[in-house]
Design a protein around this nucleic acid. Sequence first.
RNA 1: GGCGCCGUACCCAAGUGGUAAGGGAGAGGUCUGCAAAACCUUUAUGCGGCGGUUCGAAUCCGCCCGGCGCCUCCA
Length: 480
Amino acid sequence: MPLQLYNSLTRRKELFEPLIPGYVRMYVCGPTVYSHSHVGHAKSYVSFDVLVRYFRFIGNKVLYVQNITDVGHLLDDGEDRMLKQSRLEHQHPMQIAEAIARSYFEDMDALGLVRPDISPRATGHVLEQIAIVQSLLEKEFAYEVNGSVYFDVRTFKEYGRLSGRTLEEAVGGTRVESRSEKRYPEDFALWKRAEPEHIMRWPSPWGEGFPGWHVECSAMSMKYLGETFDIHGGGLDNQFPHHECEIAQSVCATGKPFARFWLHNNLVTVNGQKMSKSLGNFVTLKDLFTKYDPIVVRFFILQSHYRSTLDFSEQALDGARSGFERLQNAVQNLRAALARAEQEGRKGGSHCDAVAYDRQIRDALDDDLNAPQAIGALFELSKEMNALLASGSSVSLESLRSVDNVYRKYGQDVLGIVPEVPGSSRSENLENKLMDLLTTMRNEARKQKNFQISDRIRDGLKELGVTLEDRKEGTVWKKE
RNA sequence: GGCGCCGUACCCAAGUGGUAAGGGAGAGGUCUGCAAAACCUUUAUGCGGCGGUUCGAAUCCGCCCGGCGCCUCCA
């Protein structure tokens, strides 16, 4: 089954093929860098990370662009959120932007995300934004008032297609007082006049000012991906107005189609309510990572579909952690068995049909990136292998290798929930050597029934946060 | 008020016409000097409620109840 993706533009799953065969051009709305990332950001970026990984896995080259918004994102009262934060922290806005951008990458790296190929900043692309605004003015899709430029939404008949609303509806339901400067309440700012106290300002044909929020994404996506590209992604809460406005200004500026596929991830909820900064119910990733391993958070996120809401709770996270550990154990068991089989040069043995699971996982991912279903299949495979290994039957080298291959391909490369080396008992360092020494001594003591010594070793290690487990295959240790 | 989404076991969560994936928790078991872990088995005659369409519905249609999102900054 070829890859199908749900396109918000058409409201249905569509066969996805890049415009240029074998080359996917993709843009995802990145963070506004004024405060640390929370679980909601993680859901969005983890989802698109899996998409990028999957595109590459099935043989495409991908150019993945994700912006960093460091100007123009306004609050209700018209204040730039970057400037507000800078005022609160007594720092230059670019200081905030730099610190938060670093924090963002730190968090995303921890979650195992593949970095975007290009991470352009809005402040670095003011010229490109001005060029779009100028083009829109020339073509009379926009108008200037007192040093600000607005997009005239009535000139674009497709306005509202993405979000499924018509101008009449929108204006009827608008709860915001219309800005007197605008010709029409739904018109949106392309360029804003900077008041004297406004620090972030650039010269423009209309005087000193700063770009509107939406236009940066049009400028940066088209600069690096071309006027028409394959995929534009982002959070569902950006569908309107942000993405609607992007489409309007891009299509009108170039006269060409903009993004072909629009993908929207759903939101993280807490007790059924959206996790957001304004509600104050958000959990920053940095806080979360003190309690949960980032890869557990990633696993938790991927256990629900990207287009479903994900309800956040400690109980759910704890459940994910246990499930994650179960999968790691299964992979460890399998690899230990594989190592033994390779050592003995095993010929023959019982069979496990990894191909069926491979197929199942491929089908799940091809169907609008159904990661939870793919994970379900990985667990079923694990259960079958565990049972086979526990029964004591010797599994054929070929089967063991093909199962390991499924873990590597999907668990590791595509989903990123199986580390290169699961668990902590394998790498070669002093810690490992010391632990080997201690566990060997302890097992010798146990053989001699000197349990005073053996328990003293185990209890002592426990106090240091190291747990020993005596398994059939030998003793393994884990750090808390 | 307009547009849209969701309601599946104690918790999280797939499934969108063919007779309920998966994970956690609980229960039972294997292993074991003890402990812990690991592993196995097991757990929804039913998918918010009521009608309808169909040989057949969690899945389609209608109504109702409950919750949420967007319409204003948010991934």
